[in-house]
């Protein structure tokens, strides 16, 4: 793979909490608190984690749907987080988004043709009216919808078909990177498979990079190249897919894997059930943010925040995790052995 299309370093987004008589700021929601990663051209990086971990906020920050608190977002060698609205416009074309809900993300008063033509017009991609028509028709082919459906309204389509329109709209701008924010989560199993297959085909055909934000680990494993696991505004582990699923190196990843229900009744698997809930991002725990729920936490975890460090694995290739356990001798490190297969009953 070549140079990264996207590089995010130490990204922070803190939302102010307003309160009091004069609406003064009384605190912050530390939604994303120092996140770094990169995506290569044509690569899929998945961002996984539970609700409130900040994964969607990261997606929105990359799309510059709001200004970030600190850090850098570099798209194809050019820093975009501090660009003015005008300077940002040409860069906006290169990062597009597919949202979760195919029902609310399409304007019900626009025909499919206009939904797809809008980004083409906005970025001045079509030479003339005929070219525009042709591009719209080609987009319909790309997402496997009949060309004559361009005259129809969003409500005439099923959820899966609407998601195809959403994908076509993202493709209309000829982006390099698409942020898929839970893009298949709202779909039924059989339709989900259709859209997952379509996304994979498109990536192959067009060499797209995908930031795939999802909480569904089975889908992620199926379609990603690398995975970043988030917890309470931080990335706790990043690894190539195979390495992560074979040998998770963070206790949270391990618990996530063991918690996914698998469709094989009676499978013997190691089960780790985390106690309690995710703490509030307004007042995240000191030290390691996961220590309040971690089954292996020890004294150091409560005071010192672990950094993302390289961890040696059998498949050794860029596997990093933020956990103090890896500083201990193997005998005292429950994550030293590869437990993936036992966790998912594979």
């Amino acid at each position: 793979m070549s140079a990264p299309i996207l590089e995010v370093s130490d990204l922070k987004k803190h939302f102010p909490l307003k309160g009091g008589l004069l609406g003064s700021t009384t605190g912050y929601v530390y939604a994303v608190d120092g996140v770094s990663f990169s995506i290569e051209k044509g690569e899929t990086l998945s961002l996984v984690g539970e609700s409130g971990c900040g994964k969607s906020t990261v997606g929105k920050a990359i799309l510059r749907l709001f200004d970030i608190t600190a850090g850098q977002v570099v798209l194809d060698g050019k820093r975009i987080d501090d660009l003015s609205a005008g300077a940002l416009r040409p860069m906006r074309r290169r990062v597009q988004v597919v949202f979760q809900d195919p029902f609310s993300s399409l304007n019900p008063r626009m025909r499919v043709r206009d939904i797809l033509a809008e980004p083409i017009r906005n970025f001045g991609l079509a030479k003339d009216g005929k070219d525009l028509e042709e591009r719209v028709a080609k987009l319909m082919d790309t997402v496997r919808l009949p060309r004559d459906a361009v005259n129809r309204w969003p409500h005439e389509f099923s959820g899966g078909q609407r998601q195809r329109i959403g994908i076509a709209r993202a493709l209309a701008a000829e982006p390099d990177l698409i942020v898929c924010d839970e893009a298949v989560s709202a779909l039924d199993v059989s339709v989900k498979a259709q859209i997952v297959n379509l996304l994979q085909d498109l990536q192959q055909e067009l060499g797209l990079a995908l930031l795939f934000i999802s909480h569904d680990l089975a889908i992620v494993e199926h379609m990603t190249h690398r995975v970043a696991v988030m917890y309470l505004g931080k990335i706790v582990e990043v690894a190539p897919k195979r390495s992560l699923f074979a040998a998770p190196k963070h206790p949270y990843t391990e618990a996530l894997l063991s918690a996914v229900p698998v469709p094989s009744p009676g499978a013997a698997r190691q089960r780790i059930i985390l106690k309690g809930d995710v703490p509030s991002p307004i007042n995240p725990p000191k030290g390691c943010r996961f220590h309040t729920r971690c089954p292996y936490a020890f004294d150091r975890c409560r005071v010192e925040e672990p950094k993302l460090n390289h961890v040696a694995t059998a498949l050794d290739a860029g596997h990093v995790a933020a956990c103090h356990l890896h500083d201990r001798p193997d005998a005292e490190n429950p994550l030293a052995v590869a437990k993936g297969a036992a966790l998912v009953a594979a």
Binding site: A218, E221, K241
Partner: peptide, 27 residues
């Protein structure tokens, strides 16, 4: 059979059997 085939299985990457998901065509 179609429903089960269209579900990705957790742990698929461990066996290297990342086949294309089976689709149930249509609606």
């Amino acid at each position: 059979q179609g429903l089960l085939g269209s579900m990705p299985k957790l742990g698929s990457s461990l066996h290297g059997d990342e086949t294309r998901l089976a689709e149930i065509p249509g609606l």
